[in-house]
Write a protein that binds this DNA or RNA. Structure first.
Lengths: 247, 247
DNA sequence: GAGTGGTCTAGACCACCCC
DNA sequence: GGGTGGTCTAGACCACTCG
């Protein structure tokens, strides 16, 4: 015998409407019944109806236009959620990260531009090699603006992902993390570190971190051995939709 | 003189608390004041306080535990939002897509496994070449389970992204879209289509679509010329945080 | 049992949109 | 002016957690 779960009224409203959208009773662009009508239909107060509609909006089903009503929105299949944390490439294995280099350097013009450095500004460069099951699987190179009196403590940054590395070095938080994913042929340096042939394909993940006042506080790339690493993503539409299956 | 915008009370509550979290007054793991306390502090009713707290939860600041309270959550820097729509590679240019092939085929074991095909089941294969500024920039290969009486109309699928292609062929909607991003060396076929040397690096985007009843209704790959295409992503934490700047 | 969040009501007033 | 969504109140009862 099935357990009789009492679903909240607001949830029933959201779920009921979502079904009418899924089966085509309400189509994208349509106006659904007004909050007043839904109140009457479900015998619920306006606040309860609104709680249900909020759920549907968050799940991406509705677009609300003040003064007009709630429109059924078109599904978005082109937006995905992806996880990336260079430390996870190691699988958390002991000895999964080798710190190759921590140095102060004069930046190249490219790095200077990425970090928005003032003339004369120097950078801290951190180079790490990440291992998966004993094999080098990613070569990670990061640049931070050098600031006097903000030392980089080697043992503190070896095993932390980029945003935490930046936090330990200077700023409290990075508030924005931009990522660019591309493919490239391994150059001499990457090939040597990763033990692959030069010009082998690599998955390149470029990251740029910003502080609360929109300064660039870190930039770098992770060069991933294509046999050991891929990025998995899932449509956000589907993810958000899961809130409708809480009960 | 600045325009005097009256912010809703629930927004002021959310914004005020978010600032106390940002400046460290409340730290991750801390319990924030209870709804009753916040009601008194802001002179707001419980429902209004809850509306503010919902905003903060959605922005990823809070984790609510019934019976205990609202805890400040740890920021997540490893979750990103990315857009991918193979049709956008063309930049919407006329003639940006060349339909190379639409055929019924006996699937290879690999494809049979991906599509969960029954023995004897056939597939529809769609091959397209995408152009960016006149140059071939991506080679797109998709497989759909063949169903009798569901013809694939060539002109209807040439210019549509994969989920719509599947919708036109069979199922109403794909409800789940799984993507896997990797790098690989161009094989003979890809190299020829894209006009690159064999073993050149490619960015490979693999997609698998599911129907509402969890059947696989489409699978395929997009092989992207690494000079013409990269994926841009942004930390979800930052995105969700934007709701706190609506007013 | 005291405190917490979760649900829900039956009103109120407002700004916005359209006729 | 009549309908829509947006905000807000001052209560109520419930389930949960913890001592």
């Amino acid at each position: 015998m099935a357990v009789n779960i009492v679903r909240p009224l607001y949830y029933q409203i959201a779920y009921g409407l979502s079904n009418k959208i899924k089966n085509g009773e309400f189509k994208p662009g349509d106006l659904i019944p007004s909050e007043t009508q839904l109140s009457a239909e479900y015998g619920a107060s306006k606040m309860t109806v609104r709680q249900g509609l909020t759920l549907l909006s968050d799940a991406g089903y509705l677009k609300t236009v003040p003064g007009k009503g709630n429109y059924v929105d078109w599904p978005r299949y082109d937006i995905f959620t992806v996880r990336f944390n260079e430390m996870e490439i190691t699988g958390g294995a002991p000895g999964g990260v080798k710190l190759l280099e921590v140095n102060m350097e004069d930046p190249t013009p490219e790095i200077r531009q990425h970090l928005n450095l003032l003339p004369g500004g120097k950078t801290v460069v951190v180079k790490r090699l990440l291992y998966t099951e004993g094999n080098p699987s990613a070569y990670d190179v990061k640049y931070l603006p050098y600031e006097k009196g903000k030392p980089v403590v080697e043992r503190e940054i070896q095993n932390v992902p980029f945003p935490e590395m930046v936090a330990k070095h200077g700023e409290l938080f990075s508030v924005k993390n931009e990522v660019s994913i591309s493919a490239a042929a391994a150059n001499q340096e990457c090939a040597q570190k990763l033990g692959v042939e030069p010009s082998s394909p690599l998955l390149v993940v470029e990251q740029k971190l910003y502080s609360a006042d929109h300064k660039v506080i870190g930039w770098g790339k992770t060069f991933c051995h294509c046999d050991y690493f891929r990025l998995e993503a899932i449509s956000s539409q589907y993810q958000r939709n899961q809130v409708l299956h809480k009960f």
